[in-house]
């Protein structure tokens, strides 16, 4: 584990998480949540959990984003908060 990369990506994960819950357009929220999952996947790959990392990259960043965007296209795209 290289702790400098770990700290940088941890800070990026937190910033993206704050962005995800504060953006009003739900389609942007879905895409940004994919970015969040991918940053989390990088964090786990750095910590040596490669099996968890590629499961998260395929399932968390891939399938979750597809689910979210499909649900957003079937409902409304705007949010009040």
């Amino acid at each position: 584990m290289i702790w400098q990369i770990d700290v940088i990506i941890l800070v990026m994960v937190i910033i993206i998480a704050i962005g995800v819950i504060s953006i009003k357009n739900l389609l942007s929220v879905g895409i940004l949540f994919g970015a969040y999952s991918f940053m989390m996947c990088l964090l786990w790959a750095i910590m040596g959990a490669v099996d968890v990392a590629f499961t998260e990259a395929s399932v968390g960043a891939g399938v979750s984003t597809v689910f979210l965007i499909a649900a957003i296209f079937r409902t409304s795209r705007g949010s009040k908060d």
Partner: peptide
């Protein structure tokens, strides 16, 4: 918003 709540659960 319910989608925001679901995303909070996932985080």
């Amino acid at each position: 918003n319910l989608i925001k709540k679901i995303i909070g659960m996932n985080i």
